[in-house]
Every structure is written in structure tokens, then in C-alpha cells.
């Protein structure tokens, strides 16, 4: 039986090996046609035009623009809620609030996509007149809510993990609850809180359907949140929707983009895991 169990455990490693192998081997074929230098230095991404240009920056810019908007929404909101839940809220409020926040991540992303395109964008258009039907603002805001399980819930877990005696020492010195929360608890829990933020950002970077539906399909090197853009994930979806022959340059290009996305996600997750391992060292 040991052999069976060991094999099962070992298969999980094969999945990672498989991901790296597929991404590397097909990206390698891509880089035989398009030079790595062009991929990293060109500023245009036009794989479907007659003159194909493969500079990944418009896609990277789109991806990070959306993630940045999501973080601008999610960090203040998440911190407010985390401090409230960890330091002020009653058990009953917590029991109701936590499952609702956790559920934000369980909602199918295609449903968020529908909601973004047909509810959030039209409302925003009334406030911001020259907002286009496809833009990065609306998906960014919705993603900001979607990643609250990381920015609010994980931050709260980290703050609750700070030993009670530290809290009481602060009260004993005459500090108010808010001052204790912002000056004592938050600094003490900072690695866990930041780890949550980074995991949230990583989730926003890898999110696909909301941006594919509501951000447009237009590779655009811009920081203007009102314009349509395309993210790395959005490009992969766009190409996959068409019927591509195996081995064509467009087919190979999604593996090159996928490899870049995988590296970014891997770096973010490693930083978050490292930060979380630091929490346990302090106390």
C-alpha cells in the first residue's frame, strides 16, 4: 500500500514538472521565431495583424494596471474591515461576516464578469462620462472586492494571531483600542497582513474571466483606466477561442505569455510564503 500512497504523492510533483515542461518547451519554440529581445523590448503586441509584433509590454501593463486598481480598492477596505473584525466586532458579527467575505472568492468569476460589464460599467459611465464600454476601471474595482478574502480575512487572521498580552500591555499604558490596533497590533502582524495583500495581488494578476469579459481585447500600452486594454490572461483566452492549428506562432505565443504569467505568480507567491513563515519566528 505504501507504494500506492507514495505514487499518489509523487504525481503532485509531476503536475508542477508538467507545467514547467509544457510552458518551457512551447515557449522555447516560440522564441526560435521571435527573439527574446523583441519579446521584452518591443512596445507593440499585434499577433493578429499582417505585420506581427510580439512585444509583451502592453499585456504586462494591462495586467498590472488592473491589479493596481484592485489593490487601491482592496487594501483600504480590507484593512478597515480587518481591524474592525479583529479588534472591535462581537462574535456574532464575526460569525456572519467571515463566511460572506470568504464567499466573495467562491463566486464563479464568469458571474463577476457579467456583473462588471452590465452593471458596474454602466453606473461608472454615469459618473465618468468618457469611460468606454470596455475599460480597466470597472474590472479593477470588482477584483478589489473579489480578493477581500486575502486582504481582509487573511489580514484579520494575522492580527488575531498577535498574543492577547501585547494588547493588554498597550491598554494598561492608556492607549485606546484604535491606537493599539494601528500602532501595536498592525506592526506586529505586518508580515501576515502584507502576505495577504501579495496573495491578493497575485490572484488579481492571474484572474481571467472578469478581464476577458469587461476589459476589452485591445493590447494597449496605457495607464488610463478609462480605455480598453488586454491582460496576459485575456490574450490567452482570446487566442484559445479561435481555432488555432497546433504549432502555429499564435498557438506558441500563448505559452510564452503563460510562462511570463507563471513566473510573475511564482515570484509573488514565494514572497508571500516567505513573509508568512516569518510570522511564526517572532513569537
Amino acid at each position: 500500500m505504501l507504494a500506492v500512497f507514495f505514487t499518489a504523492g509523487f504525481i503532485t510533483i509531476f503536475i508542477t514538472v508538467g507545467i514547467v515542461y509544457v510552458l518551457l518547451s512551447d515557449a522555447f519554440k516560440f522564441f526560435q521565431v521571435v527573439s527574446l529581445k523583441e519579446f521584452l523590448t518591443q512596445k507593440e503586441w499585434t499577433p493578429v495583424f499582417a505585420t506581427k509584433k510580439f512585444g509583451i509590454w502592453p499585456l504586462v501593463a494591462g495586467t498590472f494596471l488592473i491589479a493596481a486598481i484592485a489593490m487601491v480598492v482592496s487594501i483600504p477596505l480590507g484593512l478597515l474591515i480587518a481591524i474592525y473584525l479583529s479588534e472591535y466586532a462581537s462574535v456574532r458579527v464575526k460569525e456572519i461576516a467571515k463566511p460572506i467575505i470568504e464567499f466573495l472568492e467562491a463566486v464563479p468569476t464568469v458571474v463577476y464578469g457579467y456583473f462588471t460589464l452590465l452593471f458596474v460599467t454602466p453606473i461608472l459611465q454615469k459618473i465618468i462620462p468618457n469611460l468606454e464600454a470596455f475599460n480597466s476601471l470597472a474590472p479593477g474595482i470588482v477584483l478589489g472586492f473579489m480578493i477581500l478574502p486575502y486582504t481582509a480575512s487573511m489580514a484579520e487572521d494575522a492580527m488575531k494571531g498577535v498574543p492577547q498580552r501585547i494588547r493588554e500591555a498597550s491598554y494598561a499604558l492608556g492607549a485606546t483600542k484604535l491606537r493599539t490596533a494601528t500602532h501595536i497590533i498592525l506592526p506586529a502582524a505586518v508580515s501576515g497582513v502584507v502576505a495577504g495583500f501579495i496573495l491578493g495581488a497575485s490572484r488579481a494578476i492571474g484572474e481571467t474571466m472578469v478581464v476577458a469579459i469587461a476589459a476589452g481585447m485591445y493590447p494597449n500600452l496605457t495607464l488610463d483606466p478609462r480605455e480598453p486594454i488586454q491582460t496576459m490572461t485575456g490574450y490567452i483566452v482570446q487566442v484559445a477561442l479561435g481555432d488555432l492549428p497546433y504549432g502555429s506562432i499564435e498557438y506558441l505565443s500563448i505559452f510564452a505569455v503563460g510562462l511570463a504569467l507563471f513566473i510573475i505568480a511564482f515570484v509573488f507567491n514565494s514572497i508571500a510564503l516567505w513573509l508568512r513563515s516569518r510570522i511564526r519566528e517572532i513569537y
Binding site: I15, G18, I19, V22, L23, I205, G206, E207, T208, T233, I236, V237, A240, I254, F255, G258, L261, F262, A265
Partner: peptide, 8 residues
């Protein structure tokens, strides 16, 4: 990211 599993 789940789309990477799709590429795999």
C-alpha cells in the same frame, strides 16, 4: 493561476 492549468 487557473488559466495556467488550462495551458498544461
Amino acid at each position: 493561476p487557473s488559466i495556467i492549468y488550462g495551458l498544461l
